[in-house]
């Protein structure tokens, strides 16, 4: 993308240079005028993003070195960052987040990939129905679907009653730490598989069917075609969905807050939720909460770099 951008940039700047025609001075004034217009068009966005993202970001960094309750804050050096290493809840939240990352993201993306490969088959009957049905969860708000899931999987909810109906013992979805995590993973997968499917489908439409036909003549089965052709061809899109899902998981809040409240005993708590609790549930400690938030910042930057590196290397 970057090289594409720079190529386009060269092209357009050269376009502008020729606009003024052979007369050097008029070309110069036009360029100057257009340059002023350019800054005029983008200035509002620069101001707004600075005020609502970059300035708060710097404020959070400064705050993370301050201690104190509520509004009375003073410089505290590395106190907050040292405290991070002894904080059981931080360890728990990080552990939970990594469990979600390791299990939920791959399960969802593989499922989305399989579904989109099946849907891409023009001979499949009812394609539109399947596509709409699987995409449908994306129209719900995170709070709404969390509450629906909470109801379906409550201790005396429909799922457990179904289990006991077929002779199995009910599962304590929200009161058992292991099953509560399973419930969160199931819920997120339900909500986002269709979303990722749309990206894969649009990628698959760009692949020539003749490539697959050639492979079939060579005797490749569905699994081989998937591993050796579809996955490499969709590489940039798979990478994109992996990055967005990872960043989303690192910021998980709505689902956990509404399904389990982080419980039982912090069994499902996430970093965002701990930050929220530090600020608005317990006695506000904005300094320490900012330090916790910087864990997420560092993780997002770090994981994005790794993923870009992996993607870049294997592309060559």
């Amino acid at each position: 993308m970057n090289s594409e951008q720079s190529i386009a940039a060269k092209q357009i700047t050269s376009d502008f240079r020729t606009v003024g025609g052979p007369h050097g001075s008029s070309r110069h004034t036009l360029e100057k005028k257009l340059n002023r217009w350019g800054w005029g068009f983008v200035s509002m966005s620069i101001v707004l993003i600075s005020v609502f993202v970059f300035f708060p970001m710097i404020a959070a960094l400064i705050m993370s070195f301050q201690t104190g309750k509520g509004v009375n804050m003073h410089f505290g050096g590395l106190t907050n960052y040292i405290r991070l290493f002894h904080d059981q809840t931080v360890a728990k939240a990080l552990g939970n987040t990594f469990i979600y990352l390791i299990f939920q993201v791959p399960i969802m993306l593989i499922l989305a990939l399989i579904i989109s490969v099946i849907l891409n088959d023009k001979n499949l009957k009812g394609r539109t129905f399947f596509r709409v049905a699987i995409f449908l969860p994306c129209i719900t708000s995170l709070v709404s679907y969390s509450l629906i899931m909470k109801n379906i999987f409550s201790n005396d909810g429909i799922f457990n009653q179904l289990l006991s109906h077929i002779g199995l013992s009910p599962i304590l979805w929200t009161t058992d730490s292991f099953w509560a995590k399973v419930l969160i993973i199931l819920s997120i997968t339900w909500r986002w598989t269709g979303y990722n499917m749309i990206f894969y489908l649009s990628g698959l439409q760009g692949i020539e069917p003749s490539i697959y036909e050639a492979a079939e003549i060579d005797g490749a089965n569905s699994f081989q075609k998937m591993i050796h052709m579809t996955v490499p061809l969709l590489k940039p899109i798979i990478l994109f969905t992996t990055i967005t899902s990872t960043i989303g998981t690192l910021q998980l809040f709505d689902e956990v807050q509404n399904i389990t409240k982080g419980g039982p005993a912090n069994g499902t708590v996430t970093i965002s939720q701990y930050i929220y609790n530090l600020c608005f549930k317990y006695t506000p400690n904005f300094g320490y909460a900012s330090a916790v938030a910087f864990i997420v910042v560092v993780l997002i930057v770090f994981l994005s770099l790794i993923q870009m590196k992996i993607g870049g290397k294997e592309n060559q």
């Binding site: 708060p56 970001m57 690192l250 930050i275 930057v301």
Partner: peptide, 15 residues
């Protein structure tokens, strides 16, 4: 700015 997580922004924005 797309990489900045909202949980890091909400405290300074709130203040």
């Amino acid at each position: 700015s797309m990489m900045v997580p909202f949980c890091a922004l909400m405290i300074p924005l709130y203040r």
